[in-house]
């Protein structure tokens, strides 16, 4: 298991370390100079993206045919991707939060932005967890490139449905919106982001089980 983690981490590090450093510098500069803190929220997404890329590298080198001859189980082979994704997303979350705090500290806006930034990073983390919970099983089923397109189409359809539903529903008519109205803005944001992360983690765990089942059936 440790050997598999090491292999994927080293694959990412040898392929993406320059890209990662560039993204960190660029996004921080944009967040600081253009007042676009959401660019640093995107760092969390990038963390997951690197893991999804290891699946492409595996496909290119036909790693899975070789890996199945090694003394590791299908659950371990798939599990390391999920563990590493959690690690990278968690690490990127901490880094984004740190950089946002540092930017605000320099600008003297720490007090007013602290909670907003934290909530923003938490929402980003929740959304990214859900995104990769959907993408990883599809990557095992269809291949990494086709899975990305599939999920983007699915997200587009979902956003369209939500937009349609909100257009046809009277505002304030649901119990959820009534409850949200009762809370202040910050509380709602943390309630929403906490729920999103909880849902994301549950979906992520289910996703690992689904991916393992797909992987076991797959032939190389």
């Amino acid at each position: 298991m440790l050997g598999l983690l090491y292999k994927d981490q080293m694959t990412i590090w040898s392929s993406y370390r320059k890209n990662f450093l560039l993204v960190v510098v660029l996004y921080t500069a944009m967040a600081y100079t253009l007042d676009m803190p959401f660019m640093l929220f995107a760092l969390v997404f990038m963390g997951g993206l690197y893991i999804a890329s290891t699946l492409s590298f595996d496909e290119m080198s036909h790693w899975d045919a070789y890996a199945r001859t090694l003394p590791v189980s299908a659950g371990q082979l798939v599990g390391v991707k999920y563990l590493l994704a959690l690690g990278w997303m968690g690490g990127s979350f901490v880094l984004a939060e740190f950089l946002l705090t540092a930017c605000d500290l320099f600008k003297g806006q720490l007090q007013e932005n602290l909670l907003y930034n934290l909530a923003g990073c938490l929402v980003a983390l929740g959304l990214v967890l859900i995104y990769y919970a959907l993408t990883l099983p599809l990557s095992y089923k269809l291949g990494a490139a086709r899975a990305r397109s599939g999920v983007i189409v699915a997200i587009g359809i979902s956003v369209g449905l939500v937009a349609f539903a909100s257009y046809t529903t009277q505002p304030g008519s649901t119990s959820v919106s009534s409850a949200a109205a009762a809370m202040n803005e910050t509380s709602s944001l943390f309630f929403f982001s906490g729920g999103l992360i909880a849902v994301g983690l549950v979906l992520f765990a289910i996703s690992w089980m689904v991916s393992t089942a797909i992987y076991k059936k797959k032939e190389y």
Partner: peptide
């Protein structure tokens, strides 16, 4: 096992492959 075209990703070095295999075996 040696397969003709299935192995570690080509961006890895022999030293890193060795450390990975040490963790696996």
């Amino acid at each position: 096992v040696v397969f003709e075209d299935a192995y570690f990703y080509e961006g890895m070095s022999a030293a890193r492959i060795g450390r990975s295999m040490a963790g696996i075996f």
